[in-house]
Nucleic acid binder design. Structure first.
Lengths: 120, 120
DNA sequence: CCGAGTACCTGGCATAGTCAAGTAGCAGGC
DNA sequence: GCCTGCTACTTGACTATGCCAGGTACTCGG
């Protein structure tokens, strides 16, 4: 399987997923990458996640804290701030309403031009 | 209703919608904007659509032709090329599989921290 | 000491939607 | 004839964000 993954489609959705996953359970970046992969986003990379986490923290939507680890460098655990929770619910609404528009359009049957436009 | 529209969420989806709408029925840019608005994408602007159409044509996914109009300047009607149809079905698949990951995550119930993590 | 796994960060790049402004054809009112 | 407004398309500059490549650094086993 090579194809199916248009980077553009992830735009905006990634931060939403991060907020969501971290609302469900506090995690650190490296682990978040693994959780995303388990969800099916197999080709997500650290280079996408770390910057996104940093940005969300910078914007005050996530709060991070360092925790020493015995199996490597310190981990930076994140959880949403109140602003983050609000961003999550607003973003979720945005996504759902967009999907509610897009989905039906994409799945409705295409009129077959060869059978329907004989009169054009 | 003011808020709900994160521009980033549209990334990639817009071209998909364009390909789809034009596969259903040949249109020109101005009309496509109206069709998108009718679908519910009320704050889509011409400045988003025209460049997207131009890009799709440049990439060989749309073919355009000029048609004179009696109510203004010539209209440029677009329809998908074979490459465009293929892009449409691949893109649709991408979108559906992304949505299949994102949707369940976003709608599953959030564990309420105040009732579940009293021991933290 | 070295390699591998864990863990994080950064700079530079490419993509694509948005805004604002401009160009132009056409119709109706005055 | 001119002005206004709608139709219709184009473009440049800006911005947001995901991605790639590379770098740092800690721990452990050999």
């Amino acid at each position: 399987m090579v194809p199916t993954h248009d980077p553009q489609l992830l735009k905006g959705v990634l931060s939403l997923l991060l907020l969501r996953l971290l609302a469900e359970r506090e995690s650190y970046g490296y682990e978040v990458v693994q959780r995303l992969r388990e969800l099916g986003l197999s080709d997500i990379g650290e280079g996408s996640v770390y910057p996104a986490l940093a940005r969300l923290e910078r914007e005050g939507r996530l709060q991070g804290r360092l925790v020493a680890s015995r199996s490597g460098p310190a981990r930076k655990y994140y959880r949403p701030t109140p602003a983050g929770s609000q961003a999550l619910s607003e973003g979720t609404e945005s996504w759902l309403s967009l999907a509610a528009v897009v989905h039906p359009v994409l799945v409705r049957r295409l009129p077959d031009p060869s059978t329907t436009t004989e009169d054009t």
